[in-house]
Design a protein around this nucleic acid. Structure first.
Lengths: 96, 96
DNA sequence: ATAATATATGAATATCTGTTCATATATTCA
DNA sequence: TGAATATATGAACAGATATTCATATATTAT
């Protein structure tokens, strides 16, 4: 298959965004609907800061989207593309 | 979504396997059919050693499979699951 | 057996990555 | 305005990772 160097880099970046346990768990939580940074941090046993740092990367990859409400920021999955990728990955892991 | 810690780790490992430009390009080449280690190295401008190291990781993740023929080893994608993940990633990158 | 070839592997190194800690920004409340 | 809260950001450090180089293993050919 033909693949420009740029696309190869973009693809690697996309999968990199999913290549960490913390981010995987963030995305899994967001599948139940939007959550604030703190709610995510609480749910995952991480500091707000660590979660915020990770969300930045996910945002840049367009995997999550932010909505500001007062002083909170609620994050949700950017589109169902993300969930599809996630589930397809799970299928592979579950040895499908 | 509920996700055991083990599954989260497995998922992250799977996507990690796709999180590097070299491996992405290896997989892209293998979409055209099986290739020897040296053929991959030539095609990618990498050393045989570097490619071999990466193939080991891809093998352990069950993303590629090896077939030995004489002193050569031919690699191919393990199943079409891999190609599907790859293409779905491309869709996202191509902003679908 | 010896040489040559294809791949694999281990150690070393340079780079990248995730978390922490301190601090900044923004918003609400008193 | 000033205190409190939610999130973001930068620097620094520890741990992971990809490549290189040297070497090992396995197979074929002479």
């Amino acid at each position: 298959m033909k693949l420009t160097e740029l696309k190869a880099i973009k693809l690697a970046e996309l999968f990199s965004a999913l290549s960490d346990t913390s981010r995987i768990r963030i995305i899994a939580m967001l599948m139940d609907g939007e959550k604030s940074v703190n709610a995510l941090a609480q749910g995952l046993g991480m500091t707000d800061s660590a979660v915020s740092h990770q969300l930045r990367g996910l945002r840049q990859m367009h995997l999550v989207r932010a909505r500001k409400a007062g002083r909170q920021v609620f994050y949700c999955l950017d589109d169902d593309h993300v969930a599809k990728l996630f589930h397809m990955g799970l299928d592979h892991v579950n040895h499908g």
